[in-house]
Design a binder for these strands. Structure first.
Length: 446
RNA sequence: CGGGGCGUGGCGCAGUCUGGUAGCGCACCUGUUUUGGGUACAGGGGGUCGUGAGUUCGAAUCUCGCCGCCCCGACCA
């Protein structure tokens, strides 16, 4: 992509309304524009990252055996009356009336609708287990939206729902989600720690939240420092194997890690003092097992092997896709701007032409652009009539992890410069070597 | 919803107290210059000062209403 043809409205100054670093950087990097309180337009750069994150979530859900689908954002109030949540949910639910005076709502979550789909078509235990999910816009009419996309009213969320015959099967689904979430966050370059949490309006007995440690997090968290040493890594796992999933759950939840809602001071104090940590965290996902809370009132039953009808055991599972952009930036930035992890970067590599209009520099940049593209990579070539300083500042701000700098001085020696955004380290090498190196970096991260 | 604050070219702000017909920096356009970490100079375009009413010879400025936005708190992926 040529920057001169792209739409990248970067700002030198920070808009006054932005308080936290991720919000400031998203506005300055031209990723989002506020439309109204807690509601944002996603400009091309922001949308690109949103899609990258969405893609990783899809891949990991499908890997775990879950089926993607899509449900509407506007729903009839009827189902919600049936479950009892039309009254319970309160002011946070945006209620709308259509032209026929029917009560509608903008979905804050979709347990009712998915359960209705299930009960319409599934009547035998032979169709279980079943897990379906969607990535769809949600709306929760927060009293006070803030922090940009971290606490918007409209937000993009992956929500998944499992249906199982027994509690044991449903807990396996719970564990499977935990494993898939660990993989998902790690692919985005994040460490998200599962913590025992409170179930809130979704209800249920078992629930874990996934938290990314960050000073600007909204939750206070308490944990045993040993937990941050755990990595899921690239281990192979059979998602149908109950034992394997259970073992991962135990590994990642055996140490103390709780949010303030469920914090237990006495238990916490049993950890050796030097390992006790009190910090803040950003919630980027949550998994629930809630049994028959929705299947009973909504009549989602199957016939078991014995011919008797029983309500199915369910759970629901969410990942805050739009919030993740904020969380990643909070966890990965410096004074000059964003530092994207390779897994979610909007462009794989920046190309900075230090002397636009110089025929050799222009030609070298264009050749680099083509070579990177033919390796399946997306470069962003800054071909604007800008000074070098301005181009560097823009690249640093938007956070591409790798940058190739091309100028007449280097070209005279047959080299360009490859720079890591994260470390700032530069290395001179031939253009061909730079392309090969970048291709290799992304091959490993694929 | 309780408490606090703000609304003036695209962005950041001054001007409001003490009423006199709108200004600065950045960005943008033109030209010259410059070019390895936000170049310098010259010229230029762009604002019914959130909105409605009132006071006044005269309102960005004073009064009242409304709308929007932000911050702290309770609530939340």
């Amino acid at each position: 992509m040529r920057l001169s043809r792209y739409f990248l409205p970067v700002l030198k100054e920070t808009p006054a309304e932005a308080q936290i670093v991720s919000h400031r950087l998203m506005l300055r990097a031209g990723m989002i524009k506020q439309a109204s309180a807690g509601i944002y337009s996603w400009l091309p750069l922001g949308f690109k990252v949103l899609q990258k994150i969405e893609q990783i979530v899809h891949e990991e859900q499908i890997r775990a055996g879950h089926h993607p689908m899509l449900m509407p954002t506007l729903q009839s109030a009827d189902l919600w009356r049936e479950s009892g949540r039309y009254d319970d949910y309160g002011q946070e639910m945006l209620r709308i009336r259509d032209r026929h005076d029917r009560d509608m709502l903008y979905t804050p979550t979709a347990e009712e609708l998915i359960t209705d789909i299930f009960r319409s078509y599934v009547s035998s235990y032979r169709d279980l287990p079943l897990t379906m999910y969607q990535i769809q816009w949600k709306f929760r009419d927060e009293i006070r939206p803030r922090f940009g996309v971290m606490r918007g009213r409209e937000f993009y969320m992956k929500d998944g729902y499992n249906f199982d015959l027994t509690k044991e099967d449903a807990l396996h689904a719970y564990n499977r989600h935990l494993v898939s979430y660990l993989r998902t966050y790690e692919r985005m370059g994040l460490q998200a720690i599962p913590m025992r949490a409170d179930s809130g309006p979704i209800g249920g007995d078992d629930t874990h939240e996934f938290l990314v440690l960050a000073d600007t997090g909204e939750s206070e968290v308490f944990y045993d420092s040993e937990i941050t040493d755990l990595k899921f890594g690239d281990r192979e796992i059979d998602y149908d194997d109950k034992g394997q999933c259970q073992a991962v759950l135990e590994e990642f939840t055996s140490r103390y890690a709780r949010t303030d809602e469920t914090h237990d001071e006495a238990l916490f104090n049993e950890i050796p003092e030097e390992r006790r940590r009190v910090a803040r965290g950003i919630e980027v996902g949550q998994i629930f097992y809630f049994g028959t809370k929705y299947s009973e009132p909504l009549g989602a039953t199957v016939q078991g092997p014995d011919g008797k009808s029983v309500p199915v055991h369910m759970g629901s599972h969410g990942i805050g896709v739009s919030r993740l952009l904020g969380a990643i930036i909070e966890a990965s930035h410096d004074d000059n701007g964003i530092i994207w992890p390779e897994g979610v970067t909007p462009f794989h590599c920046g190309i900075v032409n230090l002397k636009q209009g110089d025929s050799e520099a222009d030609a070298a940049c264009e050749a680099l652009e083509k070579a990177l593209e033919s390796n399946g990579l997306e470069p962003l070539y800054d071909d604007r009539e800008e000074r070098a300083g301005g181009k560097f500042a823009t690249m640093d701000l938007i956070g591409l992890p790798w940058r190739i700098t091309v100028g007449p001085r280097g070209l005279a020696k047959g080299v360009v410069e490859l720079t890591s955004r994260r470390t700032g380290e530069s290395e001179e090498m031939s253009p061909e070597a730079a392309v090969a190196r970048v291709a290799e970096i992304y091959e490993v991260n694929r």
